[in-house]
Write a protein that binds this DNA or RNA. Structure first.
Lengths: 195, 195
DNA sequence: GTTAGCATGTAAGGAGTTACATGATTTT
DNA sequence: AAAATCATGTAACTCCTTACATGCTAAC
């Protein structure tokens, strides 16, 4: 079973799928990819790379160009590929928590449809359970909630509901095989200058 | 400067504002309040309560009814009130990260408008910076992104834009003093004890 | 009278950040 | 030549979770 710490490993394996990369670049790509929350630190990445080297999930690539800069370029091994597939198709809580779901989703292109559907549906079920639980408890604890606390609740519920709809669209798209998730290019966003 | 760990303390202080409570109840309320991410564990809460006792931010309340159950009821002290105000009005990164922003927002009813605006605007600026940074890097790294990775990006941007709009509405409501959600008769600041 | 849930705690350990330390190379 | 950024790494520390340990009380 995947411990939480394997999230970084999965991300590294997924990125190295695209081709050899060195640590610094991995960090940049990773932060861009999941930049909506935390930022991955060197103190976390480099030890992980060392560990993955030991486990032979990755290996140092032969330097093609004679060192412009002293850097260690990593590439994925066969064992690494196998581990990537194993982690991607894994079910259970670790697969649909916020962070780890995002990583998995980003690498969906390398997974088969069965896996994609399993992860998407698992995530959706989990969010729906959260919604039900909160709404039940909310109904039970019918206390005079403060205005701001109530607004936070409302906003939270709305966000999760939106996420559920997004997942449903994706699941539908997978099932029908239709490529385009959104046919209309003019959705209501494009952040106007709000003052 | 507030370390990250003071988030739980802030939450406890905010909840105890409503009245004395014991640990088990605090945990339930907290998990309901910020149930959208992690769940607070006992191993985290109880040591924090002990620590807060030592710092005299809270104290054991005299048991009014002779113990139905053996439980320790805590209530907030004057020092705790002061600390609560200090934490609420604190600026800087710790105030507008995801988790800690939610807590602060939930207790806005106990903060003055100046503080509320500062926190809301700080949070909005931060999200806008993220958006700009990501979109700039996205434009720079004009690589052929995989379909799923692109969809994840799009969804992420959309979510943050939505959050920014939400914050803008709230800021506007604060400024005009209009209470769009409901006309709440009295949510006066400077938390009144109920006893 | 036994199960389920209330209630409080501790010990061990995981996961990751911060701060530190070092040096090369590109840009100004 | 200086500053910025690229690039790698380590040590200490923080925060929190998991798992364990204990016992009460309400309900069936």
């Amino acid at each position: 079973m995947a411990r939480r710490g394997e999230t970084i490993e999965l991300a590294v394996l997924g990125l190295l799928h695209e081709g050899p990369m060195h640590g610094y670049e991995l960090r940049k790509r990773l932060n861009l990819m999941l930049g909506w929350g935390r930022v991955l630190s060197y103190g976390s990445l480099y030890p992980t790379l060392k560990k993955m080297l030991r486990k032979q999930l990755i290996e140092e690539a032969a330097t093609t160009v004679v060192s412009r800069r002293p850097r260690i370029v990593y590439q994925i091994t066969d064992a690494g590929n196998a581990e990537f597939q194993r982690l991607m198709s894994e079910v259970g809580p670790t697969a649909w928590e916020d962070d780890t779901f995002d990583i998995r989703f980003a690498f969906f292109g390398r997974a088969d449809m069965e896996t994609r559907l399993r992860v998407l549906e698992g995530r959706r079920s989990r969010l729906q359970e959260r919604l039900e639980r909160v709404q039940k408890e909310l109904a039970m604890t019918q206390q005079e909630v403060d205005r701001y606390a109530a607004e936070l609740q409302r906003h939270g519920v709305e966000s999760v509901e939106r996420e559920v709809r997004w997942l449903s669209e994706l699941i539908n798209a997978e099932r029908t095989g239709s490529e385009t998730t959104r046919p209309d290019p003019n959705t209501t966003n494009t952040g106007q200058s709000q003052g």
